[in-house]
Design a protein around this nucleic acid. Structure first.
Lengths: 218, 218
DNA sequence: CCTACTGAACTTACGCCGTAAGGTTGTCAA
DNA sequence: TTGACAACCTTACGGCGTAAGTTCAGTAGG
């Protein structure tokens, strides 16, 4: 009676709240530590309440995909194509760094939602604008995508992570320098701080290669 | 008494049998459909028997990593470096095609077993033999690896797979050609039969790029 | 005011999962 | 014969996704 509006018991289960908390939870617990039950706890509701809003866990994951995709802008079309492509690549890479534990899921799922298709179409258009034909645009986009996927995954789920289940073998670690000299020599350049330089080298390789294709067929 | 040898009740739980059946099961059920219980059924034993041979499921997975890694040969050192590198890349790519459902796990785990280190050291040596310095070898290996990871993953877990949880939206599908012309034009080159050509284009881009680095500093 | 309906949230239950803890069996060396 | 040991089995626990059914506040129509 006193309240003219509903008291909204604690906090309503809005898509924004559910998906943001889910993303945060994944970054805390990892993608396999993430569960509907834990998310519900975090939200202050019971597990099954979430099924009122999403038909399944997979649908919730898809909604998170779209939310993260929203942070992936297309670079302004008035820049030179090489700069546009470099910016798009770095934007994608930034997604990996911003959501390291969600990224492996993100990068290996089709972007067949509307937001995903907008980005995909824009990226293909970028290659077309640069002067590549339809086939070249398709294949180059893919090749760039492979590199971006791998780079992001490596930094979030690959060598950069701790040892695999077979716990760090001290004997093996000490042996590396002796038996695997090339691995030992490469070690300093595999450190996290070196990632950006490696990423930029690979990106430059691909950009140079694309530029050569363009020059070969004027 | 009649038997001089042990009857071996049904079939012994050898590493080879366990790991081969595990890999086969993963290809049938996918990596998340794979469970210790199902593997035990397949092997004709009980779930917990497997824990006599591996301390945990993760250790079994690691053993499978090493088994698959055994199919990843280093190319003969007497070939030109570009050919060696191309062969190594194709060998890695073949792993993805041979174990499509295991590959996402394979490619995102550190190869810190002995077999993995041998391959890693050999690959880095390949770049060194080509004339790259330690830093270049490390970064180029990594950049190539990014591409190979992404290519394999895309073909085993990405766009090539069916729609994500949000089931194929017929309206959206029909709309694509109209609203996303670049996506529609690229469609034919995204088909499975086109993968190899796309892979080879990306590989050539990277090889060309590496070659240029080498020529710039003779 | 009553009623019927609706949507949000909750409850219970099922069959999976990995695995901790402990028990049983068969083989072989001493 | 005995005892150690490896190989394998049994039981049980807590967690998972989710199917099915229930509770309850708010509201529109009579």
């Amino acid at each position: 009676m006193a309240d003219t509006e509903a008291p909204t018991r604690a906090a309503p289960l809005t898509p924004d709240r559910m998906e943001s908390l889910a993303l945060a939870l994944i970054e805390e617990e990892g993608i396999e530590g993430f569960s509907i039950r834990k998310l519900a706890d975090r939200l202050g509701c019971k597990a099954m309440s979430l099924y009122h809003h999403y038909p399944s866990k997979a649908h919730l994951m898809d909604a998170m995909l779209d939310r993260v995709l929203a942070d992936l802008p297309l670079p302004p079309p008035d820049l030179p194509w090489r700069e546009r492509l470099a910016r798009a690549a770095r934007a994608f890479h930034r997604i990996a760094l911003a959501h390291p534990r969600f990224f492996p899921f993100f990068s290996t799922h089709r972007m067949n939602t509307r937001a995903g298709l907008i980005w995909l179409d824009g990226m293909l258009g970028l290659f077309r604008d640069a002067g590549f034909d339809e086939e070249q645009a398709a294949r180059l986009f893919r090749a760039f995508g492979y590199f971006l996927m791998g780079a992001g995954l490596d930094e979030t789920a690959g060598y950069s992570k701790g040892p695999s289940a077979t716990a760090a073998d001290a004997v093996l670690d000490a042996e590396v320098a002796r038996v695997f000299p090339n691995v030992a020599a490469a070690g300093p350049f595999f450190r996290p701080g070196e990632r950006e330089a490696t990423f930029e080298l690979g990106l430059a390789l691909l950009l140079d290669g694309a530029e050569q294709i363009l020059e070969a067929r004027p």
